[in-house]
Design a protein around this nucleic acid. Structure first.
Lengths: 132, 132, 132, 132
DNA sequence: GTGGTCTAGACCACT
DNA sequence: GTGGTCTAGACCACA
């Protein structure tokens, strides 16, 4: 799994981990039921503390992206991910607003915006088709 | 200006201020050259600390959205906002990525995603036409 | 015997086993003197570790719910279960307290609480009449 | 606030804290909007680590019993506690089952059980009326 | 001064 | 060997 963590970033490490793993799922590089590295091994691999990894795993569990088993460790949620219900779309819109507002201020057209959005989207989906 | 600050939010208050003002500009409710409330009065209005407002104003100045003059106080940048250059688009894409990844995991189609994106965009632009 | 083990649960598997067997006794599905499956077969049936079943059986023995004989294996205590003495009632009250506290916080009335309590109680007793 | 923590108990300290605070709310000793001690001061008072208190506070936040503010610290949820909906009642019943099963095995009648239940309930409610 | 984050290291429960 | 819990101590962001 390719997780590049920026220790200097102002984004907390555990947030980078959460985002990276969710992106891995979106890209199809992490499949439902697949096991994630143990807290200790991932922490060692990334050169960070095991508590930081632990916090990330627990946030993912809380959001329904992984299951934490007694012995087996952490696995990608095998059944169904949480749905894109109204609450999620509202949250998404709320997070989108400041990004789009800034883009509008800087004079980006709707087309330019869609282009950026689509580029990001396709980048993740294309990897899914060819990934493995 | 309608700035609703959520003291319970995890988002720092100064960030909420920055976002709110940028959104005000995007909506056309704040026009280039227009004066913003003084640090003191805005802090009093919102019931928050002077330093918090100050920090927000200075971040906006740093990003090229306002000018801070000793006499006139803080005014919306009258000339030109920073451009939507490659660096900005890259930053935008980077911020978009975790949002879209989560949407993909939850099974949102590109069309649903575009719908949410467009709704947010149009909401801000429509207000601009009728605003002032 | 119907023992459904949830490997994802936070409750240790051996605890689930202990609870399940005690509930089986309460329901009258397991009768005094009746033999329980051997450690080996139950572990195989449930797909869990021998040690886990062993631990559960020994806890049940310790609490006076089963007897462990070398020849007959594990049998439900044929004579008398431990009494509901003051010590037990105190322990019961102690375990009940956080549950009721939460129910009170959420605004449940004494009647609603009794209803839930009775429903659980009757569910177990009704099965006893028809079970065996 | 009266929080007696048993460091020897097999119940995790943070769980004891969570239970104790919820019980404090149920008893009316902790009122909505009231501030809880800071993470550091409570940890110092109880002679435990601040991370342990922190974990308890965050669990309470997650369950909707407290709010965590930037500067003000932690306060009891001022508006409404989570409702006693079907999901909660189901969880309650699930937690009640092993307790009642054991009581049945030990020969407690429904009346004895109700007596214990009511005693716990009234103990908490009576304190609320006369508390302060 | 408040909580947020991270580190380092330890012991324990579970399987 | 896995995660769960707890400790001790540090630095930072926020207000």
């Amino acid at each position: 799994m390719l997780l590049d963590i920026d220790l200097q970033s102002e984004t907390p490490i555990y947030t980078q981990l959460v985002n990276g793993i969710i992106e891995g799922i979106a890209r199809g590089q992490l499949l439902p039921g697949e096991a994630l590295p143990s807290v200790r091994s991932l922490a060692a691999d990334l050169g960070i503390n095991l508590h930081t990894v632990n916090k990330a795993y627990h946030l993912l569990k809380q959001d329904g992206y992984v299951q934490i088993n007694r012995k087996q460790g952490v696995v990608i949620e095998p059944d169904a991910f949480p749905p894109a219900d109204a609450a999620f779309k509202e949250r998404l819109a709320k997070q989108l607003r400041p990004l789009l507002a800034e883009a509008i201020c800087r004079g980006m057209s709707k087309e330019e915006l869609d282009a950026v959005c689509s580029a990001v989207y396709e980048d993740m989906r294309s990897n899914e088709l060819g990934g493995g």
